[in-house]
Amino acid sequence: MLTLETQNLTHRFTPHDIAVNNVNLRVEHGSIYGFLGPNGAGKTTTLRLVLGLLRKQEGSIRVFGDLFEQSRLEVLRNVGSLIESPSLYGHLTARENLVVLQKVYRCAPGRVDEVLALVGLPHTGRKRVSQFSLGMKQRLAIAVALLPQPALLILDEPTNGLDPNGIIEIRELLKHLNQEWNTTILISSHLLAEIERLVTHVGIINKGTIMFQGTLDALRSKQQQSLQVVLDTSNPDLSQQLLHQQNIAATQHDGKLILPSLPKEHLAAINQQLVHHDIKVFEIGIVKNDLESIFIDLVK
């Protein structure tokens, strides 16, 4: 079942500039979906559209199976969100900020202290939010998103401004929410590495267009496909010729040969053959493209 689904979602801020282009998000129930893309890719714009913060222009949005505009209130009651920079009342304390929202969500008053403890912000007392550090504000903003015990949590770069420890804490918290309460989480980021250990699914967006969407495993198998072998020999031209005779596509790079990934045995045979032709083999290596470089390839 899909918790969130968009169809051909398209948005233009100006007639010629397309910020979001035919985006078909598919966020499965119970998944943690990493929404990745470089600056200006259209992540925030997509998330604002999904929450109704931007007037929809083209396409459709379904949350919990219902069209957003037809069941806006019902949907929003079950969605927690944090979009870009924290959205908090500076003249109020952390608790007061949460009570303002607790009244509207009608959740139990005890929930306020619960979420403050969850995000590691239990003792700020009478301190106004305007005097908080960036990381403290970010934590409070996450508490705000968690307040209604949402079935869907939408977080736009939630770890912005957090220290390394904070990043790990929040990651653990999100994992916990996902496992314990089956909360579906949609989380955006610039860095695959940052959310790689958290997400089950990935969507990669660039210049408003989705470049990849699927499970993290599907992305990993893309990585497997991109394994390559480097061969450094004393006679690259002859080596290349020999390989081509065996129908192995090899290309030269800086005097080295690059060939697709092959079984170990096959590599050993190639080595023997080269030596047999009096070619010295200096190096046989495997280049491993990490997920990050796949990501960078996709958004190039």
Partner: peptide, 18 residues
Amino acid sequence: QLEYKNNTWKQLHTLPLS
């Protein structure tokens, strides 16, 4: 202006309120 100043319109508009 409280909402503009604190950048809270987006929070207010994602509450279940008409």
